[in-house]
Design a binder for these strands. Structure first.
Lengths: 155, 155
DNA sequence: TGTATTGATGGACAATTTGCTCAATTGCTA
DNA sequence: TAGCAATTGAGCAAATTGTCCATCAATACA
């Protein structure tokens, strides 16, 4: 479950310039093309690289408001059916179960503060959700990133 | 700031099979290649598509533990220098400022619960951080996703 | 010590894709 | 109705891809 420096450099390179392709990557890293291909295949096979899909910025789609909603759920029902219903709401971007009494934490986006109310109402209406409490993200000084982690993991 | 159904279908297609390329995409969508190229250029120019870099799974790198850490910071210093220092910690994957008294919320990963203590100590040591409180993500029934949002936004 | 195994290398090949340009057509709006 | 932006289909050279292969070095194992 470890990666070496070549892996880390390869990932960083592709993260910064995704369009360069395998051949150009091998040139930049001074290794054979087959090596790059093999590394990428292995990283994908090991699950380190999950995918290459386009990364979407919800704000650019008009979803300017991000909030973290903590929910308390009814214990009897279990959290699986709740998560399944939350997954049906497009504005719910991710859901975690967290420590502290069967609670859940989810990240949601909305078009405005008023729209956030609508989204929260959708969540409250989910069967099994007892109570919610939300905090709004005002600013994101460090957007989601994994590159520093990759660099640190590259032995 | 809106996308149409073709945009949405294109994004979804590329998200599911990123390796197919422009030409194959155009075939699948029954449009001309130039159209796909123009759409992708426009989506990138508008900031909807941020990038195509490889998506990394921290868990596959050995960082199995995810936690959300809420921090209270000293008001006088402001949050910018705090965020800058948090950004130096590789295990800090994202940082938000949130509503409720100058607080911040950050997502961190660690190799184990014991390792999480080390990471939290790093955060507490940041100049300006007064207190932290963390919740550990036990499970992630809905991993981060934007496709449903894209589909919903596609008019 | 001898022997597989794994990963990296460099080369080769055909097939495909890309980047770019062009003219014609479509659909919408002022 | 005139104008404009988007789409289409086509063509072209250049580059990249997918897929082989033989060789070599380092490692693990009997």
């Amino acid at each position: 479950m470890t990666i070496d420096q070549l892996d880390a450099r390869l990932i960083s390179l592709l993260a910064e310039e995704p369009r360069i392709g395998v051949l150009e990557s091998s040139r930049r890293l001074n290794v054979a093309r087959g090596t790059v291909q093999a590394r990428l295949d292995r990283l994908a096979a090991r699950g380190v690289i999950v995918g290459y899909g386009p990364q979407i910025d919800p704000a650019a789609l008009g979803y300017d408001v991000t909030a973290f909603v903590t929910l308390q759920i009814r214990q009897v029902s279990g959290h699986v059916p709740v998560a399944d219903r939350l997954a049906l709401v497009p504005e719910v971007l991710e859901v975690h179960t967290i420590t502290g009494g069967g609670d859940m934490l989810c990240r949601v986006v909305a078009r405005s503060n008023a729209d956030l109310q609508r989204v929260i109402d959708l969540i409250v209406d989910v069967e099994g959700v007892v109570r919610t409490s939300s905090v709004i993200a005002l600013d994101t000084p460090v957007p989601y990133r994994t590159l520093p982690l990759v660099a640190a993991a590259g032995t």
